[in-house]
């Protein structure tokens, strides 16, 4: 039977059956517009988060203490650029260019993770971003690696591999501080106090406030709910942190023998909404930095585009 003759409903049923069988949807395949739009939005937001996420840690590159920390931090922030590049490419397979997506970010039309709108006043924050923020990202991304869209799922596998190193680096940095002087230990604890709730928020609005969840799960865009991911994250990091004498700022945090899960206090989701909408402590600063880089780099991109020699510049 010719594909053209099928009705929308038939095509949709076939599409959903493929996903139910665990097949991946590939760029040329038929997909509902809503699926395409949803994925462009998600992958775009993810890519933007990688690019904006370079800023809070990048700020510490000039101050990193010692050769090893300096080199690993540059490499880490560089990885985030690579992830951004990979994700923009994945989104491009759905028909939207990187240029368009970047313009939307700078115009304030596209969103990115709330968590990068918080300040990084001390060196300990570099470690805390690695341990908590990258930890939460990996919990989320391991799920996405199982999503129904092939290019996104495959990008996630590589990204998760690199992120797992970032988590180890963050842990290593903080454990060194915790075992150091009183001042260092205090700095690490204060950083945890700052990052705990923003990281919990990073995993999204609660399920009770996620109206499209049913369809997103059916289409394999989300394999787990935000609340499931948040619980998975707390179960993972709470005992890790406590084992090195770092304590999340939540008096109710405890292991529940009955459920086998850690009980925790939910973050303030109104704050999450505000930060996502642009009203977080550093939204303005982050966007100004991105706009500045974009504007100051415009002549370079234009020149490269019209370069008379059309000569390929080898990668460094």
């Amino acid at each position: 039977m010719d594909v053209q003759e099928k009705t929308y409903e038939e095509k949709l049923a076939e599409f959903e059956a493929r996903i139910a069988r665990g097949e991946k949807i590939e760029p040329g395949d038929w997909m509902p517009d809503e699926y395409r739009k949803q994925l462009i939005r998600m992958i775009g937001q993810h890519a933007h988060s990688e690019i904006v996420g370079m800023l809070p840690e990048g700020k510490w590159i000039p101050h990193a203490p010692g050769f090893r920390r300096k080199l690993t931090l540059i490499a880490k922030v560089q990885d985030e650029a690579g992830h951004g590049q990979l994700l923009y490419r994945a989104a491009e397979t759905l028909g939207k260019s990187r240029g368009e997506m970047l313009e939307e970010l700078l115009d304030g039309k596209a969103k990115y993770s709330n968590v990068f709108n918080y300040p990084t006043p001390t060196w300990a924050d570099v470690g805390m971003i690695g341990w908590l923020v990258d930890g939460a990202a990996v919990v989320n991304q391991r799920m996405i690696a199982k999503c129904s869209y092939g290019p996104y799922a495959r990008a996630m596998k590589r990204i998760c591999f690199e992120e797992s190193f970032h988590i180890k680096q963050g842990q290593d940095l903080l454990i060194k501080m915790v075992n150091g002087t009183e001042e260092q230990k205090q700095m690490a604890q204060e950083s945890l106090n700052r990052w705990w709730y923003p990281t919990l928020m990073m995993l999204g609005m609660p399920d009770s406030d996620s109206p499209h969840l049913g369809k997103l799960k059916r289409w394999g865009v989300k394999v787990k709910t935000n609340d499931e991911l948040r619980q998975e994250f707390v179960d993972l990091v709470a005992p890790q942190l406590k084992s090195v004498d770092l304590h999340p700022p939540d008096d109710d945090l405890h292991y529940d023998e009955e459920t086998g899960h850690w009980k925790f206090t939910e973050p303030d989701y109104d704050e999450l909404k505000r930060v996502i909408k642009g009203d977080g402590p550093c939204n303005k600063e982050r966007m100004e930095a991105r706009r500045k880089a974009h504007e100051e780099g415009r002549w370079v991109r234009e020149a490269l585009a019209v370069s008379k020699r059309k000569k390929e510049v080898p990668a460094a």
Partner: peptide, 21 residues
């Protein structure tokens, strides 16, 4: 490394971070 996060295009962000390292 002062360009890391601020280069004119992502490819150069990556390249210059590499050179810096």
């Amino acid at each position: 490394a002062e360009w890391t996060g601020h280069a004119p295009l992502i490819e150069e962000d990556i390249a210059f971070s590499n050179i810096a390292q």
